[in-house]
């Protein structure tokens, strides 16, 4: 069954082929998502489904939703894609996720922008997660932009994560091509025995600009965090990556940022460590470099052209 069929009560809000393609790119959705979902298009709700254990309700005071996951909910997922297909639209949304004790869920968010016109199409999303005692989430956020229009496609996501005692989160932030300007802020607070892994994948090209600031506070004993960022900057694009770990307890943290720089792009990579406790163990590694010539040559000896070899290396690096 196609996604357009789920909303047959509201014909005017059916998905068109552009929507379907964006959805597939940002959320790997080919049909109705399993479990709970909320699809937002051009600032309005397009379709929503709660499940027995996951409730989605609109916020009363501002645009956005509350997603409430019952304690102990396992192996369920929530899809909350956002589509922006109109030029001149500034969409702003606040989403709050309350993950009950001991739950284990997958949350897939994503924003696809198809800007057909000359004015800016912009989506600013604020996502707040409260992961309660012993709960686990995997949160995947994909950004993608396209459209024949000349208007900029802008995304400014802000993600706030609180991990209570023994809670854990795997956060995957992906933005491959198409977004002209992004200013991403990610803030996390990891409680005792909590565990956070943030991996970021970014590819900018043309005159794009991407700024990412990640701050992780290791607040409780045995808290741990890993920030693993990989990026590719092509053409004249610019990237600034800052990751700051603040160790306030007996904890461990590691930041690794690895970038490939091409053409006349610019990359700044700034890992920061702040130890406010004698038993905070914090490390970082950062590297920026060209594609290794040896890798290109090796792939060419296997019959690939130089262009195919570059594409293969970048796809692997960002996978």
């Amino acid at each position: 069954m196609k996604l357009s069929a789920i909303d047959n009560t509201r014909q005017s809000r059916q998905l068109n082929p552009v929507d379907e393609q964006l959805l597939e790119t940002i959320a790997d959705l080919h049909g109705i998502p399993q479990g709970a979902y909320n699809i937002r298009k051009n600032g309005d709700l397009l379709s929503r489904m709660s499940s027995a254990n996951i409730e989605i309700v609109s916020k009363q005071d501002k645009p956005g939703i509350d997603v409430i996951v019952k304690p102990g909910t396992k192996n369920e997922s929530v899809h909350i894609p956002v589509l922006v297909t109109a030029s001149g639209l500034h969409d702003l949304v606040y989403n709050t996720f309350d993950i009950g004790e001991g739950a284990d869920v997958l949350i897939v968010a994503g924003c696809g922008i198809h800007n057909p016109g000359a004015s800016v199409a912009r989506h600013d999303g604020i996502h707040e997660f409260i992961v309660r005692k012993g709960a686990h989430i995997r949160y995947v956020e994909k950004h993608y932009g396209q459209g024949e229009g000349t208007g900029d496609r802008i995304l400014n996501p802000r993600t706030i994560i609180t991990l209570e005692e023994g809670a854990s989160a795997e956060v995957e932030l992906v933005q491959i091509r198409g977004i002209d300007s992004t200013n991403r802020v990610t803030e996390a607070r990891v409680g005792a025995s909590g565990r956070l892994i943030i991996s970021e994948r970014l590819l900018t090209h043309g005159a794009q600009h991407a700024d990412s600031l990640i701050t992780v506070e290791l607040a409780g004993d045995n808290a741990s965090a890993e920030v693993l960022a990989r990026s590719v900057a092509q053409d004249r694009s610019k990237q600034v990556f800052r990751a700051s770990l603040v160790g306030k307890a007996r904890s461990r943290g590691h930041v690794a940022c690895d970038s490939i720089i091409m053409d006349s792009a610019e990359i700044s990579s700034l890992p920061e460590l702040h130890a406010l406790h004698a038993e905070a163990e914090l490390t970082h590694e950062a590297a920026i470099g060209k594609i290794a010539g040896e890798q290109l040559i090796k792939l060419m000896t296997m019959g690939l052209t130089e262009k195919e070899a570059i594409d293969t290396i970048l796809a692997g690096f960002l996978s």
């Binding site: 290794a292 040896e294 890798q295 040559i297 792939l299 293969t312 692997g316 690096f317």
Partner: peptide
């Protein structure tokens, strides 16, 4: 050379084309 992110099977499939 080593490849970050490419798997053994990826390299072998490229080689085998």
């Amino acid at each position: 050379p080593r490849f970050k992110g490419l798997k053994v099977k990826d390299l072998l499939s490229i080689a085998a084309s």
